[in-house]
Amino acid sequence: MGRKLRLTIIVGHYGSGKTEFAVNYAMKMQDLYGDVAIADLDIVNPYFRTREIAERLENKGIRVISSVIGNKDSLSISAPALSPELNGLFQTEKYFGIIDVGGNPVGATALARFAHYLVEQDYNMYMVVNANRPETQSADEVIAFWEGIEDKSNLKINGIINNTHMIRQTALEDVRRGDRLAKAVSARTGIPVIYTSYIEEMVELGAYQTAGEPFAMELLMRPEWL
């Protein structure tokens, strides 16, 4: 399961599925190693946020850090009030931290405030890519967002996650399309593809060799009726 480092930062184009990957990754890391904390640093999206499933994550022993107002009370307002608890996550070594950052360069701006803590330690910063989103269909487009995110956050991306899906209509062909894109981005940037994530319920990988490790996910963020 990748390189286990103390901090893993998840960035990407908005709507790429960063949060879905981040919460699935948190669950997996909690099973493997324990002591996981997940931080919701999204100042862009109002819905489909880590805080919405805080209770489920906490029941698994995962610490959830989001707004200064609390996970539940912050659901109903649009106030990017980050919690001071975040400092603890960056400064102490108690937790294996996963940081779910808001979409696009504008979302990554929130990360810059913590960049000075990060340059002094070993961290992973993974770029989530979904080839089915209209604005990230080509390597050029992905790299434009990539550069914008690095520029705004003052941090460097060191891994690619192919998270290409169509929600409940995902097929193997979507995963393949994403693989081609992730490999093209990897060839251009020299940064490896770490995982190809896929929704286990919908996609049968069979003998298909994904770029990076296959990472099986379940839809945690989407209500069953939606």
């Binding site: 999206n45 819905y47 089915n132 169509m166 929600i167 209509q169 939606l226």
Partner: peptide, 10 residues
Amino acid sequence: DGMTGQMMEP
């Protein structure tokens, strides 16, 4: 409603 606006679908 807000969900119509925020949800993602093909």
